[in-house]
Nucleic acid binder design. Structure first.
Length: 589
RNA sequence: GGGAUCGUAGUUCAGCUUGGUUAGAACGCCGGCCUGUCAAGCCGGAGGUCGCCGGUUCGAUCCCGGUCGGUCCCGCCA
């Protein structure tokens, strides 16, 4: 190219008047007045107005007339202050313009599928097909820059803390515990497969055994499970592991790292220590293991009142071992007409399989509407007193088995908060959820499975329960939750051969199977494994929160759709018969 | 695996409820006019397999069934 930029499109101001500059960039907008022509030239640093005036250079103006949106050009010109009354105070460069004396058209663009100036001008599938164009939009450029800054922040903080950065294999052994693996067939070993890591879990534990007591890695992980707004099949973790530590050491490191990133990126001050909550309390009070504590509205135990009502549904469910819990919506009963409550009920029925949603409204000092007739006046007074209810409050009741009751009411809590705007924008509320159960009963296979993963250490206080009541053993596992998102999770690991065997036994894995799957790790434990533990941050989710978006695709340069395909390059795709032959693979059907 | 929802010019949408002549608007695109705009303006033009397949009907963008694709959720995600 003939004209190489001397400045970017975001940096010229009144200070640069009379300087001769060269700008390179894309045409964001052209405004052709017949005579004078204005182009907004854009690069990732900003936009600058460049002006062609036929009185000054008729030939140049004639050439500019033919230019269109998103053409790539280079211009040489002189910076000038804009005439009085023509300053655009909305742009950092709005006080100046560049009067063009030379133009080089680097590449023309054909008509666009959507406007780069307006991300909403195309549907999401169209934008994903032309992701490279969407990445030119102001919003995505901002998100990608924020992501880049966050990598740097994490790296420098962890470096300051004395952590070593590693890379671990992407082609690894399949360990079919947990998520479904993405498999990679081996050409050399007929019928065998590598797996892409769900996380580098075993490698980082091996590195602890090797003596690298502070490890980190910013690493892609792969899980072949269904997607969500905050879940992609390949995603990035800040993976951390430390030796000679207990839970508090890991939590305080995670706190320092998180605080550092929010400070570096948003200049936002998180508290020096994050609040903690037991898993059990999170479930009971928020109906979720990742509670959003940006607003109150706790789930209230209601069984003791339900017993005293004449409402059959509550009594039947309690008798069957189920639950009754309630939610108090303050001073909004007048906004919840029959129709709106029916809508909420339908929504809970559809998404959470709930049979019904009961409610009462507070009219002065008595229940009205809904199921109020099932409450005696005495019971009403008792409840109003206990729950400090006031006129125009509303009580929602959910009753079902325990899991459904908590989940559905937790979801309703979030939905009501959204409708009532209870969440202040810009607020960030982190907390650690602790004391997760070690094991989870799996109905399908009629056995316990590891809730976190099978290397998670039980809480030593519950050691005795491992024989008598394994379902109630707590793990030394923890999650960092921010604004209702699980942002990080980890645990103190088992580091002795004996405890690891005991764990495998509890999840119904016999010695032979354990050897086949994790023999290499069990062997390593015999050679001096230090006590260790760690945590892994869901990097993409962290960026979502920093960026203030609710869609993980917004913070990944080339994301996949809900069906795990890439609309731009059309992956996954068919492959040649020859490729399959080399891999010893035959397609069925 | 299941549920909900969307699919109409290049694009974003309206029209469909109650089937019927020529499927509209805006932005973009093309042409013309226009010398200070920054959502530039004015005039004109081109542009449609109403996602696809089937059914009902004299007749389907519209009703029904299926299918494909997007999104959201449940299950799943150690």
């Amino acid at each position: 190219m003939r004209l190489k930029r001397t400045v970017t499109c975001g940096q010229l101001t009144g200070e640069n008047v009379n300087q001769e500059v060269i700008l390179n960039g894309w045409i964001a907008k052209n405004r052709d007045h017949g005579g004078v022509i204005f182009l907004d030239l854009r690069d990732r640093y900003g936009k600058t107005q460049v002006t062609f005036n036929p009185d000054i250079d008729a030939d140049m103006a004639a050439r500019a007339k033919r230019l269109g949106m998103e053409d790539v050009i280079a211009i040489k010109g002189t910076v000038q202050a804009r005439p009085e009354g023509n300053v655009n105070s909305n742009m950092p460069t709005g006080g100046i313009e560049v009067i063009v004396s030379d133009l080089e058209v680097l590449n023309e663009a054909q008509p666009l599928p959507f406007l780069v100036s307006d991300r909403e001008s195309g549907s999401e599938d169209l934008r994903l097909e032309y992701r490279y164009l969407e990445l030119r939009t102001e919003e995505l450029q901002r998100f990608m820059a924020l992501r880049s800054k966050t990598y740097q922040s994490a790296r420098s903080r962890l470096n300051e803390e004395g952590f070593m950065e590693f890379e671990t294999p992407v082609l690894m052994k399949s360990t079919p515990e947990g998520a479904r693996d993405y498999l990679v067939p081996s050409r050399i070993h007929k019928g065998r497969f590598y797996a892409l890591p769900q996380s580098p879990q075993t490698y980082k534990q091996l590195l602890m055994i090797s003596g690298y007591d502070k490890y980190f890695q910013i690493v892609k992980c792969f899980r072949d499970e269904d997607l969500r707004a905050d879940r992609q099949p390949e995603f990035t973790q800040i993976d951390i592991e430390m030796s000679f530590v207990d839970q508090d050491d890991v939590l305080s490191l995670a706190t320092r790292l998180t605080r550092g990133m929010f400070k570096d990126i948003l200049d936002y001050d998180l508290p020096e220590t994050f609040p903690t909550m037991e898993y059990k309390d999170a479930m009971e009070t928020y109906g979720s293991d990742k509670p959003d504590i940006r607003f109150e509205m706790p789930l209230v135990e209601f069984a003791q009142y339900a017993e005293k009502t004449d409402f059959g549904v509550f009594k039947d469910n309690l008798a069957a071992g189920g639950r009754v819990k309630a939610l108090v919506l303050k001073n909004a009963a007048d906004k919840y007409s029959r129709k709106i409550v029916d809508g909420l009920t339908e929504w809970l029925r559809t998404y959470y399989g709930l049979k019904g949603l009961a409610f009462v409204k507070l009219d002065q000092s008595a229940f009205s509407a809904g199921i109020s007739k099932f409450f005696s006046p005495e019971l009403q007074s008792e409840i109003i007193g206990d729950l400090k209810l006031e006129h125009n409050d509303m009580l929602f009741f959910v009753s079902d088995n325990e899991a459904k009751t908590l989940q559905a009411l937790g979801a309703l809590r979030l939905e009501l908060a959204k409708r009532e705007n209870l969440i202040q924008p810009g607020v960030v509320k982190p907390l650690f959820v602790l004391d997760f159960p070690l094991l989870d009963w799996d109905e399908d296979s009629k056995r316990y499975i590891a809730m976190h993963h099978p290397f998670t250490s039980p809480n030593p206080e519950d050691a005795a329960l491992m024989d008598t009541d394994p379902g109630n053993v707590r793990a030394r596992a923890y999650d960092l939750v921010i604004n209702g998102y699980e942002v990080a999770g980890g645990s103190i690991r088992i580091h002795t051969r004996e405890m690891q065997s005991r764990m495998f036994e509890l999840i119904g894995m016999d010695e032979e199977e354990a050897q086949a799957r994790f023999g290499f790790l069990l062997k390593a434990f015999k050679f001096g494994a230090p006590p260790h533990g760690g945590i892994a941050f869901g990097f993409d989710r962290l960026i979502m929160i920093l960026a203030g978006t609710e869609n993980i695709r917004d913070v990944i340069a080339f994301p996949k759709t809900t069906s795990a395909s890439s609309l731009m390059d059309e992956a996954p795709s068919n492959v040649d018969e020859q490729q399959l032959r080399e891999l010893h693979i035959k397609l069925v059907e």
